[in-house]
Design a protein around this nucleic acid. Structure first.
Length: 208
DNA sequence: AAAACGGGGGC
DNA sequence: GCCCCAGTTTT
Protein backbone atom coordinates (compact mmCIF):
# COMPACT_ATOMS: atom_id res chain seq x y z
CA UNK A 1 0.00 0.00 0.00
CA UNK A 2 1.38 3.36 -1.05
CA UNK A 3 0.23 5.15 2.10
CA UNK A 4 2.29 2.71 4.16
CA UNK A 5 5.35 3.51 2.08
CA UNK A 6 4.77 7.23 2.53
CA UNK A 7 4.52 6.90 6.30
CA UNK A 8 7.51 4.61 6.58
CA UNK A 9 9.71 6.92 4.57
CA UNK A 10 8.63 9.97 6.55
CA UNK A 11 9.26 8.10 9.81
CA UNK A 12 12.75 7.33 8.67
CA UNK A 13 13.41 10.99 7.90
CA UNK A 14 11.72 12.37 11.00
CA UNK A 15 12.46 10.30 14.13
CA UNK A 16 9.96 10.43 17.03
CA UNK A 17 9.73 13.80 18.79
CA UNK A 18 8.39 15.07 22.09
CA UNK A 19 4.77 14.15 21.63
CA UNK A 20 4.87 10.49 22.61
CA UNK A 21 2.80 10.18 25.74
CA UNK A 22 2.25 12.95 28.22
CA UNK A 23 0.05 14.28 30.97
CA UNK A 24 -3.32 15.15 29.33
CA UNK A 25 -3.54 18.51 31.08
CA UNK A 26 -0.13 19.59 29.84
CA UNK A 27 -0.88 18.33 26.34
CA UNK A 28 -4.12 20.30 26.36
CA UNK A 29 -2.58 23.56 27.57
CA UNK A 30 0.49 23.20 25.34
CA UNK A 31 -1.66 22.53 22.30
CA UNK A 32 -3.81 25.61 22.88
CA UNK A 33 -0.62 27.64 23.27
CA UNK A 34 0.69 26.17 20.02
CA UNK A 35 -2.23 27.38 17.90
CA UNK A 36 -0.84 29.52 15.06
CA UNK A 37 2.50 29.57 16.88
CA UNK A 38 5.87 27.97 16.15
CA UNK A 39 6.94 25.14 18.45
CA UNK A 40 10.15 26.67 19.78
CA UNK A 41 8.20 29.67 21.02
CA UNK A 42 5.39 27.48 22.33
CA UNK A 43 7.80 25.28 24.27
CA UNK A 44 9.44 28.22 26.01
CA UNK A 45 6.10 29.68 27.05
CA UNK A 46 4.70 26.33 28.18
CA UNK A 47 7.76 25.74 30.32
CA UNK A 48 7.34 29.09 32.04
CA UNK A 49 3.62 28.58 32.53
CA UNK A 50 3.89 25.07 33.99
CA UNK A 51 6.74 26.09 36.27
CA UNK A 52 4.29 28.36 38.07
CA UNK A 53 0.94 26.68 37.39
CA UNK A 54 1.32 22.95 36.92
CA UNK A 55 -2.18 21.73 37.72
CA UNK A 56 -5.75 22.67 36.77
CA UNK A 57 -6.41 23.89 40.30
CA UNK A 58 -3.38 26.16 40.32
CA UNK A 59 -4.09 27.60 36.88
CA UNK A 60 -7.76 28.11 37.70
CA UNK A 61 -6.75 30.37 40.60
CA UNK A 62 -4.12 32.31 38.65
CA UNK A 63 -4.39 35.97 37.72
CA UNK A 64 -5.21 36.39 34.04
CA UNK A 65 -2.70 39.24 33.93
CA UNK A 66 0.01 36.93 35.20
CA UNK A 67 -0.89 34.24 32.67
CA UNK A 68 -0.75 36.87 29.93
CA UNK A 69 2.72 37.92 31.01
CA UNK A 70 3.99 34.32 31.06
CA UNK A 71 2.65 33.43 27.60
CA UNK A 72 3.05 36.79 25.85
CA UNK A 73 5.59 35.51 23.34
CA UNK A 74 3.18 33.02 21.73
CA UNK A 75 0.97 35.84 20.49
CA UNK A 76 -2.84 35.99 20.78
CA UNK A 77 -2.13 36.15 24.51
CA UNK A 78 -5.10 38.34 25.37
CA UNK A 79 -7.35 35.66 23.90
CA UNK A 80 -5.42 32.63 25.04
CA UNK A 81 -4.77 33.64 28.67
CA UNK A 82 -8.44 33.88 29.72
CA UNK A 83 -9.23 30.74 27.76
CA UNK A 84 -6.52 28.80 29.59
CA UNK A 85 -7.81 29.97 32.94
CA UNK A 86 -11.38 29.05 32.00
CA UNK A 87 -10.28 25.64 30.71
CA UNK A 88 -8.54 25.02 34.03
CA UNK A 89 -11.57 26.23 35.97
CA UNK A 90 -13.97 23.95 34.11
CA UNK A 91 -11.71 20.93 34.52
CA UNK A 92 -11.18 21.69 38.19
CA UNK A 93 -14.85 22.41 38.94
CA UNK A 94 -16.77 20.10 36.63
CA UNK A 95 -14.44 17.18 35.99
CA UNK A 96 -12.69 16.66 39.33
CA UNK A 97 -9.43 17.96 37.92
CA UNK A 98 -9.36 15.36 35.16
CA UNK A 99 -9.15 16.24 31.48
CA UNK A 100 -12.09 14.68 29.62
CA UNK A 101 -11.08 11.84 27.30
CA UNK A 102 -13.78 12.19 24.66
CA UNK A 103 -14.19 14.53 21.71
CA UNK A 104 -17.64 15.92 22.54
CA UNK A 105 -16.67 16.98 26.05
CA UNK A 106 -13.32 18.42 24.99
CA UNK A 107 -15.08 20.58 22.40
CA UNK A 108 -17.00 22.27 25.21
CA UNK A 109 -13.76 23.87 26.42
CA UNK A 110 -12.99 27.38 25.13
CA UNK A 111 -10.24 27.47 22.53
CA UNK A 112 -10.51 23.75 21.89
CA UNK A 113 -11.47 22.71 18.35
CA UNK A 114 -11.11 19.35 16.63
CA UNK A 115 -7.36 19.65 16.07
CA UNK A 116 -6.60 20.44 19.71
CA UNK A 117 -9.06 17.84 21.00
CA UNK A 118 -7.55 15.16 18.81
CA UNK A 119 -4.05 16.03 20.04
CA UNK A 120 -5.26 15.51 23.61
CA UNK A 121 -6.84 12.17 22.71
CA UNK A 122 -3.74 10.92 20.90
CA UNK A 123 -0.85 12.38 22.88
CA UNK A 124 -2.53 12.69 26.27
CA UNK A 125 -4.58 9.50 26.39
CA UNK A 126 -3.01 7.30 23.72
CA UNK A 127 -6.37 6.84 21.99
CA UNK A 128 -6.90 6.33 18.27
CA UNK A 129 -7.49 9.75 16.76
CA UNK A 130 -6.11 11.85 13.91
CA UNK A 131 -5.13 15.47 14.53
CA UNK A 132 -5.66 17.37 11.30
CA UNK A 133 -4.10 20.81 11.10
CA UNK A 134 -3.38 22.90 8.02
CA UNK A 135 -0.28 20.85 7.18
CA UNK A 136 -2.04 17.49 7.39
CA UNK A 137 -4.97 18.85 5.41
CA UNK A 138 -2.85 20.38 2.67
CA UNK A 139 -0.37 17.53 2.30
CA UNK A 140 -2.95 14.73 2.45
CA UNK A 141 -4.64 16.38 -0.51
CA UNK A 142 -1.42 17.08 -2.37
CA UNK A 143 -0.26 13.51 -2.02
CA UNK A 144 -3.62 12.28 -3.22
CA UNK A 145 -4.48 10.43 0.00
CA UNK A 146 -7.79 12.29 0.11
CA UNK A 147 -9.72 14.87 -1.86
CA UNK A 148 -11.38 17.18 0.64
CA UNK A 149 -12.37 20.76 1.30
CA UNK A 150 -12.23 20.97 5.08
CA UNK A 151 -9.90 19.61 7.78
CA UNK A 152 -12.78 17.73 9.40
CA UNK A 153 -13.54 16.03 6.10
CA UNK A 154 -9.87 15.14 5.83
CA UNK A 155 -9.95 13.63 9.31
CA UNK A 156 -12.93 11.45 8.39
CA UNK A 157 -11.47 10.31 5.07
CA UNK A 158 -8.09 9.58 6.62
CA UNK A 159 -9.79 7.30 9.13
CA UNK A 160 -10.55 5.02 6.19
CA UNK A 161 -7.46 5.63 4.07
CA UNK A 162 -4.84 5.45 6.81
CA UNK A 163 -4.09 2.23 8.76
CA UNK A 164 -4.52 2.81 12.51
CA UNK A 165 -0.89 2.18 13.28
CA UNK A 166 -0.08 5.48 11.56
CA UNK A 167 -2.73 7.68 13.15
CA UNK A 168 -0.66 8.78 16.13
CA UNK A 169 2.32 9.70 13.97
CA UNK A 170 0.80 11.43 10.96
CA UNK A 171 0.38 14.85 12.54
CA UNK A 172 3.92 15.36 13.73
CA UNK A 173 5.37 13.75 10.60
CA UNK A 174 3.40 15.91 8.20
CA UNK A 175 3.94 19.07 10.23
CA UNK A 176 7.71 18.61 10.04
CA UNK A 177 7.53 17.54 6.42
CA UNK A 178 5.29 20.50 5.66
CA UNK A 179 7.57 22.96 7.38
CA UNK A 180 10.77 22.14 5.55
CA UNK A 181 9.74 20.42 2.29
CA UNK A 182 6.05 20.36 1.39
CA UNK A 183 5.43 24.02 2.20
CA UNK A 184 2.14 25.82 1.44
CA UNK A 185 3.73 27.79 -1.42
CA UNK A 186 6.82 26.85 -3.41
CA UNK A 187 7.27 23.35 -2.00
CA UNK A 188 10.79 22.01 -2.41
CA UNK A 189 9.84 19.06 -4.60
CA UNK A 190 13.47 18.69 -5.64
CA UNK A 191 14.34 17.66 -2.08
CA UNK A 192 11.20 15.59 -1.47
CA UNK A 193 11.83 12.06 -0.16
CA UNK A 194 8.45 10.82 -1.39
CA UNK A 195 8.20 12.62 -4.72
CA UNK A 196 7.69 9.31 -6.54
CA UNK A 197 4.63 8.56 -4.39
CA UNK A 198 3.04 11.99 -4.79
CA UNK A 199 -0.11 12.01 -6.90
CA UNK A 200 -0.33 15.82 -6.80
CA UNK A 201 3.06 16.20 -8.46
CA UNK A 202 1.66 14.49 -11.54
CA UNK A 203 -1.77 16.09 -11.52
CA UNK A 204 -0.94 19.76 -11.22
CA UNK A 205 1.59 22.33 -12.27
CA UNK A 206 1.53 24.19 -8.99
CA UNK A 207 4.65 22.41 -7.74
CA UNK A 208 8.20 23.50 -8.25
C1' DA B 1 -17.26 33.01 3.97
C1' DA B 2 -14.27 36.24 6.09
C1' DA B 3 -12.28 38.75 9.87
C1' DA B 4 -9.85 39.01 14.17
C1' DC B 5 -6.49 37.68 17.43
C1' DG B 6 -0.26 38.95 17.76
C1' DG B 7 4.59 38.57 19.21
C1' DG B 8 8.52 36.21 17.33
C1' DG B 9 11.45 34.18 13.90
C1' DG B 10 13.04 33.63 9.03
C1' DC B 11 14.74 35.92 5.19
C1' DG C 1 11.02 45.71 7.12
C1' DC C 2 7.85 42.31 5.47
C1' DC C 3 5.60 37.83 5.72
C1' DC C 4 4.03 33.82 7.83
C1' DC C 5 2.95 30.81 11.72
C1' DA C 6 1.03 22.83 15.31
C1' DG C 7 -6.57 27.28 14.98
C1' DT C 8 -10.63 28.80 17.02
C1' DT C 9 -14.21 31.98 17.67
C1' DT C 10 -17.00 35.65 16.20
C1' DT C 11 -19.12 38.55 12.58
Amino acid sequence: MTVDMIMERLKKRYPPGKFESNDPFRVLISTVLSQRTRDEVTDRAAEKLFARYGTPGALADADVDDIEELIREVGFYRVKAPRLKEIARIIDNDFQGRVPADMDTLLLLPGVGRKTANCVLVYGFGLDAIAVDTHVHRISNRLGLVSTKTPEETEIKLRSALPKEHWRHINELLVRFGRDICRPISPKCGLCPIIDLCQGRRDTKTFV
